[in-house]
Amino acid sequence: MSFRFRESHLYGSYGYYDTVNPSIALNDTRNWADGRKRKVAWLASNCGNSPFLHWNRTGFVRELSKLVDVGMYGKCGEAGACPSRFQQVNGKDYLSSCNDFLRQFKFYLALENCACRDYMSEKFWNHAYNLDLVPIVFGPSRADYEAVAPPNSFIHVEDFETLQDLADYINLLDRNDHLYNKFFEWKKYGSVVVSREQWLFEPKNMCQVVRRLLADEKAEREGIQTPSLPDLTEWWTNSCRQSIPEFPIKMQRQ
């Protein structure tokens, strides 16, 4: 069981798009930009020298902040805005207080520590979709995101040739509520369900394990050859890009 969407025998992720339960009615015409006065938020704890950080993410955000309004919070930015995990703020717990703060923004930088196939963490599912922010993503390919995310709901960094092009697009959406609201049309056809680690052990998922065990036992009894396991190095170790440029796109137009 892993976050690998296509290859895992059992799929377990940080979230999923539920196409059975829409978030809003088809005739809902709300403006998702209302009350959101700031543009981009970034909340991170792994900064420059972390062994888990495979690219210059902090430098990328700092360069982007020169071109567009970016609020940087957590250990990699202004620490006090979103309080520490166990801190009470005005009678609210950490999560409620931080979520209320982030809801003043329109976009969220869901930039993963590394670029691995299918790897989309809580940055993407919880911090962005759960708070109705448009995620600006970097990590796996656009195709990997499109396989599991709500349709037309995110901005992929690598779709842009330069950082200036990305900043220009963010500024365009900030000025044009009609274009911005298109990123929320998916809510009429589904909803995002955020997962926690304990979610993997709930009956719905444990039943996957039981079904798989029973199927394999039956195949063994009947002499049916079960699919061979993939090479671990190829399936896991090599599923991440080993070398990412300091910045995934150019800083300036040539």
Rank of each mutant, 00 (worst) to 15 (best):
F105Q: 00
W42P: 07
N205R: 03
Q164W: 13
L10K: 07
G35H: 02
S8N: 14
S2R: 10
Q104P: 09
A33N: 06
I244D: 01
N130A: 13
E185N: 15
E122W: 05
E161W: 10
F184K: 08
A219V: 09
V134E: 05
K106P: 04
Q242I: 03
S8L: 11
E222P: 01
E78V: 14
E7I: 10
S121I: 00
V61H: 04
A143P: 03
T237M: 12
Y169Q: 15
R38V: 05
A33W: 03
A81G: 10
A149C: 02
S84R: 12
K75C: 05
E7D: 14
A219T: 11
D177Q: 05
Y16E: 09
D174H: 14
N171Y: 07
A215L: 05
L67R: 15
D231C: 06
A219S: 12
E246P: 09
L229G: 07
F107C: 02
D165K: 08
L26C: 00
S243V: 12
P203Q: 06
Y17L: 01
L163T: 02
E161G: 15
V89I: 15
S191M: 06
V40Q: 12
A167T: 11
G71R: 01
N46C: 10
W42F: 09
F60K: 13
I244G: 02
R38N: 13
Q87S: 04
W186Y: 11
V148L: 03
R241D: 11
A79S: 15
D165E: 08
F3G: 02
E146P: 07
C240S: 05
V209A: 00
S84A: 12
C114Y: 04
K92R: 15
S8W: 13
V210Q: 05
L163Y: 02
Q252F: 09
Y73Q: 09
K204H: 10
E220M: 06
N99P: 01
Q208H: 14
S228V: 12
N126F: 15
A110I: 06
N130I: 02
A167G: 10
G74W: 08
K250T: 04
F247C: 01
E246T: 13
E112Y: 07
D93K: 09
S45N: 07
F101Y: 14
Y189D: 11
C76G: 09
A79W: 11
K92Q: 14
I155F: 00
D69T: 01
S195L: 00
S45C: 05
G80L: 12
F107S: 03
Q254S: 04
I249L: 03
L95M: 06
D69M: 10
K66Y: 03
N31M: 01
N31Y: 01
C76A: 05
